[in-house]
Each structure stands twice: as structure tokens, then as C-alpha cells.
Simulated assay, not measured.
Amino acid sequence: MAHSRARRNPADGRAPVRRAASGVAVLLLLLGVLGFVPGVTSSFADLRFAGPASGARLLGLFQVSVVQNVVHLAFGVAGLLLSRTVPGARAFLLGGGAVYLVLWLFGLAVDRRTEANVLAVNGADTWLHLLLGAAMLTLALLASRRNHHR
């Protein structure tokens, strides 16, 4: 019978908080890129730079604009860079989680039909931002409990 450790786990040696941060970063990069892909983003011809007039929908559900896609891409790149160290990964998950919770509150407070809705968020975006923010904060706290300094 083979020992369960016979094959090396590629994640061995990386602190859980670093793996969590890089995973979230890849997810955010994916969201940002897919927002620019016709077919994955429905009504792609209606994609606008910013504001509520953007009619493009990622997966037919999440309203997107160029600004919103770029925000996700920027957070993804920052996450990949910061996930290189334990303190950076923790800072990315905590700070990014807080920012996404602020975006959730923005989505709840803004009149989505006005130019104040600069990111072009709809109800689905608002709840996705809550999920992302809560998940990032939770990962920061849980993954940091097993503190590895690598």
C-alpha cells in the first residue's frame, strides 16, 4: 500500500495564507479578463468605460464596465505580487476584503440608474462583492492561524 506522502504536494512549503491569497488573486484576474471576452460577457457591444449605461453582463448576470474589469485585474495583480510573502498575503486578504465590503456597501447605497454608479454595479455585483469581501477576510483569519514564515 502506497504511503499518502509518496507524491510531493506542490503546495508543500507555502504558508496557507500565501496559497489563499494567490488563489483569490487568480480568481480576480479571471473575473477581470472574462469581463472583456465576448460570449462569456453577454451584450459585449454595450460594454462602456464606466457608469450605468454599460449593458454588458459577465455570464449574463453581473453588470460590467471597463473600469470594473480593470479594478478586478488590478486587485488580481496586486494579490499575486503580495502573496509572495506571508505579511503581504495577509495584507492583501485583509485590505482587499475590506475594500470589497466597501464596494458591497456602495452597491447598496448608490442609485444604480445615475452616473454616481460609476462602476456599473447591479444587484448581482453587489452580493458578489459581499461574498468576495467576507471570503477574503475569513481566509485571512483562518489561513493565518497556521502561521508559516516562508
Rank of each mutant, 00 (worst) to 15 (best):
S22Y: 00
V40Y: 06
L101C: 12
D111K: 10
L141K: 08
H129Y: 10
P16E: 05
P10S: 09
V102S: 07
Q63G: 07
R90D: 00
P16K: 00
L137Y: 01
L81D: 03
P52H: 13
L34W: 04
V64D: 00
S65A: 13
A143K: 02
G32E: 03
S42R: 14
G35D: 07
G51M: 07
T85S: 15
L31W: 06
L93H: 08
L80V: 13
R14I: 01
G35Y: 03
L131P: 02
V33W: 02
G51Q: 11
G79N: 12
T126A: 09
L141W: 13
A124T: 13
F106Q: 04
L128Y: 00
G60I: 14
F106K: 01
L119H: 03
G32H: 04
P52Y: 07
S42G: 11
L139F: 08
F36W: 10
L131S: 14
L34V: 03
G13C: 09
F62C: 06
A98H: 08
P38Y: 07
A78H: 06
A11E: 03
R84L: 13
V102A: 14
A120R: 00
V26R: 10
A89S: 14
L93N: 04
G96V: 12
L61Q: 12
Q68K: 04
A15V: 02
W104N: 00
L81W: 14
T126C: 06
L130V: 05
D46Y: 07
V37P: 00
R48V: 08
S42P: 01
P52L: 06
G76H: 05
V66P: 05
L47N: 05
L58I: 04
A15D: 07
L27P: 12
A45M: 09
A50K: 09
V40T: 12
G96R: 10
S54N: 08
L59A: 15
V110Q: 10
P38R: 09
S22M: 08
A15F: 05
R18S: 09
R84K: 12
T114C: 10
L103A: 15
A56D: 08
L131C: 11
V64F: 03
G133W: 01
L61D: 00
G76A: 11
N69S: 14
P38H: 11
F44C: 11
A134T: 13
H148V: 15
A78D: 08
V77D: 01
R57F: 02
L119A: 10
A109L: 15
G96K: 12
L27S: 15
M136N: 10
P38D: 09
S83E: 01
G60R: 05
A134V: 13
R146K: 13
L128A: 14
F75G: 05
L47Q: 11
L82G: 04
V121P: 01
Q68I: 06
G35A: 07
A50T: 15
A98Q: 07
R57M: 15
A15E: 04
R90H: 09
A21K: 05
